[in-house]
Design a protein around this nucleic acid. Structure first.
Length: 210
DNA sequence: TCGCTGATGTACT
DNA sequence: GTACATCAGCGAA
């Protein structure tokens, strides 16, 4: 039986869940304090039929095993020298996920600064950057549920995006079958979206509805 | 076992 | 624009 929390992450298309996640608060209670930020950018990965997914064609290894778990679980994986953070969606054995690519710092900015050693938007405007900013340095939380965890998404703490933009995903092979599918979603004009141009940033509202 | 490849980020030119 | 840090998985051998 799924909890109400888990039901948020299943029962509708992954792209719809991804859009709905924009504006939600991600929180991490680390050993040296709490860091949190609002989701401003994410990408949907649609499982076995998605040529950019880690589970394409039913590929299933120890490495990507968490993707096959319960909706609302954490999928934390390593790519080159960095870690990325996915949220597992859809039913068990339905390996779909949503990659968090950008958050807007809300709590513990000083701590994030400490973790990253930089200031400004590059604190959290990329998938590996936000993981590092939160203070996560291992796959320890991989496969665990978000609900009640030290790393969680607070569905009841959120901002509302004024406008949501859909584009092709970043860093995936464009010539692949699904390389050009518009499955990346972000909050229009938010400075913490990766690759956001300076002139398009709205420094007053950050793209949130008031 | 070897060599290649990334859902990346930084530091350069 | 280009180089590179650095590591699990995978296919070839």
């Amino acid at each position: 039986m799924l909890s109400a929390y888990q039901q948020f992450f299943t029962g509708r298309p992954t792209t719809a869940i991804a859009r709905d996640l924009l504006g939600k608060l991600v929180r991490y209670q680390g050993p040296d304090g709490e860091a949190a930020g609002y989701i401003v950018e994410c990408e949907a990965y649609l499982g076995e039929n998605d040529s950019a997914s880690h589970a394409y064609n039913g590929r299933r290894t120890n490495y990507s095993e968490s993707l096959y778990g319960q909706p609302g679980n954490i999928y934390l994986y390593q790519i080159r020298a960095h870690y990325c953070f996915d949220i597992v969606v859809q039913a068990v054995n339905e390996p779909q996920g949503i990659l968090l690519r950008g958050i807007e710092p809300a709590i513990g900015q000083a701590l994030m600064h400490e973790h990253r050693g930089v200031t400004g938007v590059s604190l959290t405007n990329g998938p590996a950057k936000l993981v590092q900013a939160l203070g996560i340095h291992s796959r320890e939380l991989d496969g665990q549920p978000l609900e009640g965890n030290q790393l969680t998404v607070a569905l009841d703490q959120f901002k509302i995006p004024r406008e949501i933009i859909a584009t092709p995903r970043v860093g995936v092979n464009l010539s692949g079958k699904d390389g050009k599918k518009p499955w990346r979603f972000y909050v229009a004009n938010n400075p913490y979206v990766s690759g956001m141009r300076k002139r398009e940033m709205d420094l007053e509202t950050h793209g949130w509805r008031d």
